[in-house]
Nucleic acid binder design. Structure first.
Lengths: 224, 224
DNA sequence: GCAAAAGTGTTAGGAGTACACCCATGC
DNA sequence: GCATGGGTGTACTCCTAACACTTTTGC
């Protein structure tokens, strides 16, 4: 393989992550505002060019940190995007990830070398995005929805104690769908993913609700 | 983004496809033998470097054609592989695909500019592979198994008429699992994917079996 | 007529879904 | 005491899984 063959010269790799959170029943995604051309002033997902000395996932996490200050996030690769013209600068193939984090537990850095702002956007109020990030975000959301019903990916949102009505509202926000209280509880408990803490707390209601927490399981199961 | 920044200079993209077939109840994958360094003389999956003027999937299909002569194959992207040292020549990220084709209906080109041989290998008798293709193949097989139970991906193996015992043997080969004849037939028919042709033919048994064929559906359903 | 594979129906258990009433608290 | 959300059980349906005997053909 010759490095200077024009057929495959000047190629590069983007690592892009759609970071989701849920606030008060609203699913949101983290966007950052570009400071430089191309797409100067446009909002995009966190990400950037992969370095030669890092593996894909490490690069994606480094980019997340550089653009938002977020550390300690677990991410999952879901697809590569590679249309010829997806970047106007040179041929770039994007490896896309999703991540879930509790926005109330992190402090987002608003401005960096390459970005002039950063914020959480409700997924039904997304501005026009730079590059092909609208397409990536659309598929990221579908992937998140498929993951939420088979894995404990929501553990990132509920690292500690939570009530069942509370987590149900999160499921409903992400899946955009309502569940029967009794059936939801029955199903969730039958999965052996969460355990009773024998404590109570309050969510929205007047009556205190039982507090549960995720077990330290790694199993992946069908949820809904 | 500066093209000559050492951090991301000299990167490239591989498009790699694991092409599967099933012959007489044995799941096989197409491998080609490398003619040049690196990994000269090693078997690998079909694939190679993406060109600047082609989309990912087009590149994967071009590589399949160049290395094997196969055309008219439908493929599906399943994962990107990007360990820093996965290629000894330069930094290459691989976008990996699976495909299914009926080996009895295609004539494989044995030798090309870059390969000295090509053949179908039973998946439990794979030689050591070059690059990270053993890892890619392992994940490709898992992905194929997940797809076979939710889609009509097997249509590629049975474009025309087939008997139910015949296609059952194919499911069993790929999933490495036996099914009850009655339940298999019931389930497959209930999916509304295949239809009776009112003809009979023979597979292995003495008694002629009914012939079915895939409908022209595009739906994707849960099979097993 | 016998070996070999094809074809067929029933039952029991588990999962999903639909649905209504009482309970604990704040005000 | 009443409004608000939390907690619980039952019945029906559907899907899955287990299981045995008869039929058609080639030899």
């Amino acid at each position: 393989m010759k490095k200077n063959n024009a057929l495959y010269k000047n190629q590069g790799i983007h690592v892009i992550t759609a970071i989701f959170t849920v606030e008060f029943g609203i699913t949101k995604v983290l966007l950052v505002k570009r400071k430089n051309e191309p797409y100067k002033g446009d909002w995009i997902l966190t990400g950037g060019a992969l370095y030669n000395n890092e593996d894909l996932e490490d690069g994606a996490k480094r980019e997340i940190f550089e653009k938002s200050g977020i550390t300690d996030i677990s991410i999952e690769q879901f697809k590569a995007f590679g249309k010829v013209d997806r970047s106007p600068v040179m041929r770039m193939v994007a490896i896309a990830y999703i991540g879930v984090i509790d926005s109330s537990r992190v402090k987002i850095i608003r401005e960096t070398n390459n970005t002039s702002n950063a914020d959480w956007f409700p997924i039904d109020k997304i501005p026009g995005l730079g590059f092909d990030h609208e397409e990536i975000l659309k598929e990221a959301l579908l992937y998140l929805q498929s993951k939420i019903v088979t894995t404990d990916i929501l553990k990132a949102l509920f690292p500690n104690e939570f009530t069942i009505p509370e987590i149900q509202k999160t499921y409903e926000a992400i899946l955009n769908k309502k569940f029967d209280r009794r059936n939801f509880r029955k199903k969730l408990l039958s999965l052996d993913l969460i355990e009773d803490t024998n404590k109570t707390g309050k969510f929205e209601g007047k009556k205190p609700a039982k507090l549960y927490k995720f077990k330290d399981t790694i199993e992946s199961k069908k949820v809904f």
